[in-house]
Write a protein that binds this DNA or RNA. Sequence first.
DNA 1: TCCGTAGTTCGATATTATTGAACTATTGAA
DNA 2: TTCAATAGTTCAATAATATCGAACTACGGA
Lengths: 108, 108
Amino acid sequence: MVQFVHPSRDDITLTGVLEALSDPMRLRIVRALVAQQGCLSCTEAAPCPDMAKSTLSNHFRILRQAGLVMTSKKGVEHRNVIRLDDIEARFPGLLKMILGFYDAENQG
Amino acid sequence: MVQFVHPSRDDITLTGVLEALSDPMRLRIVRALVAQQGCLSCTEAAPCPDMAKSTLSNHFRILRQAGLVMTSKKGVEHRNVIRLDDIEARFPGLLKMILGFYDAENQG
DNA sequence: TCCGTAGTTCGATATTATTGAACTATTGAA
DNA sequence: TTCAATAGTTCAATAATATCGAACTACGGA
């Protein structure tokens, strides 16, 4: 039985968040999760056939540990939700700003 | 003769900046440079006797490559300046926001 | 000219990321 | 039930990156 550990809101750190978002694939995943405003499975959030699924799994683990993503199991797949409220409470405006720049950089 | 290469303003990328700032030591260096509003030598910007100077040098190289820091040689030491204008032009408000959270996290 | 200082570069090691293979858990169909 | 398929994790090996100490460069001052 896989049991995911997520940090509590107050344990989310600035460098943890920056580190998590500094990888292009993870930033793309977060972008997709925010755009969706709901649950996405891992493969839905990162449609990337050229990447090993173990690597993808590792990226989600990093996002969880940074406190950005909440993962729960539902059936055969994992539901990933962006922890918008917690991130906003901890670092108000940060995620929105970064994603704004991300969009501008990617044919905004 | 050491010749430093700095990216032009438009070549500063979001993930490059986030990656550079995701390291605690580099974030601290950037903090010091912004606070100083002027030049700092490498050892002034990172008073850190427990770190190898080759490691410190590498951190400055990463900061330069990310476009955050401009280094020039003056006498025996290197003068490091934060590229405030370029960063602000590229990602308005980002650095100020991140440093604000940094300060809050470190006995603000 | 010689020494001290500030940083870089280099080669070796330590840490981290990526990968494919094996494994777990769940669903759905025979 | 059992079997195959799906989604993702875990593991062990390799690839890439970070850190370190030592050697080196460049400059300034005695």
